[in-house]
Amino acid sequence: MHMEARRVGESLIVRLKGELDLNTAEAFKAFVREELAASRRVRHLILDLRAVPFIDSSGVGAILGRYREIKEERAGRLIAWGPRQPVRRVLALSGLVRVMDVVDTQQEALALLKEGNRNP
């Protein structure tokens, strides 16, 4: 699992490359925590999932944990950017899509945050 992060305004954009499962979930969790700790300005987390071919319940749990952190500690939002079809299905089946938005482009993600539309 390769991970990169960059900041755009109040959003942290984390690009993941590789499979998100039991073996990689811990590294993902630690990486996002470290990146969040480095900036108090960051409120929202945008996960670039375009290069994630596989996710299972361990990956879903790791994403849910990060959602809770940004929601509770920063009143922020979580957006999934570009999940492939198999990943999108797992996110839907898990119920994660009820607490996060799924978008196809970075522009769409940033526009959503600007509008302040809240995913109920």
Partner: peptide, 14 residues
């Protein structure tokens, strides 16, 4: 108390 939510069987059954 990890974060897997016990969803494993849900996915297997689905």
């Amino acid at each position: 108390p990890e974060e897997r939510m016990g969803l494993g069987f849900t996915f297997m059954e689905e």
